[in-house]
Amino acid sequence: MKINDNTRVIDLTVGDFLDVVETRVRRVLSGTTPKDNEKRRYVYGLKGLMNLLGCSKTTASRLKQSGKLDAAITQCGSLIIIDAEKALQLAGSNKNDK
C-alpha cells in the first residue's frame, strides 16, 4: 500500500501510522541544522532512554521525571524524543555532582 498525504488514518495499520509519525518527526527535526555539521542521534521513548543509559525502565522513567534531562528531551503528547549525546552529557554531569 502506498501511503501519501491523502491516505486516511483509518486505512493504516499501527505500524504504518508509527512509521509515518517517525518520518515526519525526523523531517521536522532535520530542519534544525546542528552546529558544525555534526550529526545528531536521537532515541525515542523510555525504551530508547533505557537502552541508551543501560538501566531499567523504572530508572529511566524516574530520571525523566526528575527533570535532570529536560534539556535533552522533547515531548509531544506521548511521543518522547531524546537527543542522545546531550542526555549522556547531562546524566554524566549529574552523576559527578553527587
Rank of each mutant, 00 (worst) to 15 (best):
E38W: 10
V21Y: 00
L88K: 15
K35M: 12
Q89A: 13
L53A: 06
P34M: 13
K47P: 01
T13Q: 06
N96Q: 14
T59V: 04
Q89W: 10
T23Q: 00
A84H: 07
K95N: 11
K98Y: 05
A72C: 10
A72R: 00
D97A: 14
I80S: 04
A71H: 04
C76E: 06
S78N: 12
V43N: 07
D70R: 06
I82M: 08
N6T: 15
N51S: 14
D5T: 14
K86N: 10
N94L: 08
L18S: 00
V28N: 09
G31A: 13
C76D: 07
P34T: 15
R26W: 09
V21S: 00
I10H: 12
N94T: 07
N37Q: 09
L53W: 02
C76V: 11
D19C: 00
R8V: 09
G67P: 07
L90P: 09
R40V: 14
A60I: 07
R27Y: 06
I81C: 05
T58V: 11
L88A: 12
D70L: 05
L46R: 05
L52Y: 04
T13H: 01
E22R: 02
V20N: 00
S66V: 03
N6A: 15
D5M: 13
T59N: 04
L88S: 13
L12T: 09
R62D: 09
S66E: 04
L90W: 08
T7I: 08
V43L: 07
K35Q: 13
L29P: 02
E85S: 14
K35V: 11
K68R: 03
L53M: 09
R41Q: 15
A71N: 08
N37M: 10
A71R: 04
L63D: 10
Y42Q: 10
K47A: 04
L90Q: 06
G67R: 03
I82A: 04
T59G: 00
Q75M: 08
G45Y: 01
N6Y: 12
K64A: 06
R62H: 03
N4W: 07
L52H: 12
V14Q: 10
A91Y: 14
S30N: 14
I73S: 06
I80A: 03
T33K: 15
G15I: 05
G92D: 15
G77Q: 06
L53G: 02
D16I: 02
Y44L: 01
K64C: 10
R41N: 14
G31F: 04
N96C: 13
D70A: 05
A72V: 08
D16N: 09
T23C: 02
V21M: 01
V43E: 08
N96K: 13
A87W: 02
E85Q: 15
F17I: 01
G15A: 07
N94V: 08
C55Q: 02
T7L: 09
T74N: 07
I81S: 02
L49I: 09
L90C: 10
G15K: 03
L49K: 04
A87F: 06
E85L: 13
